[in-house]
């Protein structure tokens, strides 16, 4: 018999998807974040928005939150990306910008190849948020 617990994605993806962390509920409060970035479209089926709060003096990310409309990997990769940034305390923006889709996929224990290109959008939304932050400084 097949393994009844087998899932279409890795268990890490499943965990992030079923129990996503670091997302924002509802609209952000006034002054809660310094910048936001959004990528994706209804046509492609995934939209992700990332908010960041940055320590001006050190350029370190004090807080980062996400919202995603999309499939399991889109949700899981947003959750994983934010966790990668926050797990060791406040990461510098430049450091966070170096995180690649491949690293996110690896952090998640791998993704199906057809999902790789379309659903890892968190890094791109973050890049936009960082650009918006820099533009306003």
């Amino acid at each position: 018999m097949a393994d009844v617990d087998k899932w279409v994605y890795s268990n890490i993806v499943k965990d992030h998807f079923m129990h996503p962390r670091g997302f924002l509920v509802g609209a952000p409060k006034e002054g809660e974040f310094d910048a936001e970035g959004e990528v994706g479209s209804p046509a492609c089926g995934d939209i992700i928005r990332i908010w960041i709060k940055v320590d001006k003096a050190t350029d370190r990310i004090k807080d980062i939150k996400w919202q995603t409309w999309g499939c399991a990997t889109a949700i899981a990769s947003a959750s994983a990306f934010v966790e990668m940034i926050m797990k060791n305390g406040d990461m510098k923006i430049d450091e966070a910008l170096k995180i690649t889709p491949t690293e996110i996929a690896e952090y998640l224990g791998g993704l199906p190849s057809r999902k790789f290109h379309c659903s890892i959008l968190a890094d791109k939304a973050f890049k936009k948020a960082a650009e918006n932050y820099r533009a306003n400084q």
């Binding site: 996503p20 509920v25 509802g26 939209i47 928005r49 995603t68 409309w69 949700i75």
Partner: peptide, 8 residues
């Protein structure tokens, strides 16, 4: 929907 940005 609680973590969807399309309509909060």
């Amino acid at each position: 929907r609680s973590f969807s940005p399309t309509s909060i």
